[in-house]
Amino acid sequence: MPADLLPPDLMAQLERLELVTRKVFRGRMKGERRSKKQGQSVEFADFRNYVPGDDLRSLDWNLYARLDKLIVKLFLEEEDLHVYVLIDASPSMGFGEPTKLEYAKQLAAALGFVGLVRSDRVVIDTLGQAAGAKGPVLRGRKSVARMLDHLASIEPTETTSLVDGVKKFCLRNRGRGVVVLITDLLDKSGYDAALRYLVGQRLDAYVIQVLSQEEIDPAMVGDLKLLDCEDDDFAEITVSRPLLDRYKRTLDAFTAGAQEFCSKRGLNYLLAHNELPVKTLLTNYMRRRGLVR
């Protein structure tokens, strides 16, 4: 089991966390979480009048004796949560130290671990997966090792565009749940269409944009021909203070635009960079955003 993805001390901290969703979902199997849905568990939720067809087992006989009315006891349903982690494994994610993909894997491992510990249904996909090829569905603490192996096998070699990858993901996974998209959003065709797919899925979607430090504060000098690692595109620049300032303003505008896009459509947006520890990201930023608690 690749230990660097999930160090033991992080695991110890993650044990105490659980994934939260604000939306009402129907889990397929009984889980360990109280659902907003009413169902069958030991936890009382409410009373209501009996209507024919109700399960007689849920009648509150004590109340019938006291009030001479048929009252049904309602219990909270406990169910599992579907957690999808969608990783962008395009070549652009292979930059940085550690690479953005490494960072994304660490983050996915941490989120997956939280989910597995809470018996949620965890699916870790990449954008490049074909529509029909489903990733392994993981459940329970015993699957942690499988999850880590799966993560370790992901390489930054996929050339699918963001929108195609999200579209295929949506086709593969019709169910509801929480989806965490970890990407750098640096796609020339734009991120709007891709994120709209997520909105349309009625998923509780989180977009975590991961940038490397060299993208945030480029340390380059001279006359350069910048080659895009994903296509044959290039940009000729002469590094100068105004150009760097202009780049930073462009980057700020880009991230601000993504954040605005997400917040307008009920998506959660988080900006991370590859030197921010995963632990801090989870325990501070994500807790504040309500993904974990």
Partner: peptide, 23 residues
């Protein structure tokens, strides 16, 4: 014409192009 420019691979030229375009 800039006959001599040092090539450098970057994750994406997207933001650079935008920055240049702005200028």
């Amino acid at each position: 014409l800039k006959l001599r420019r040092a090539p450098l691979e970057v994750p994406s030229t997207l933001l650079w192009k935008r920055a240049i375009d702005d200028l």
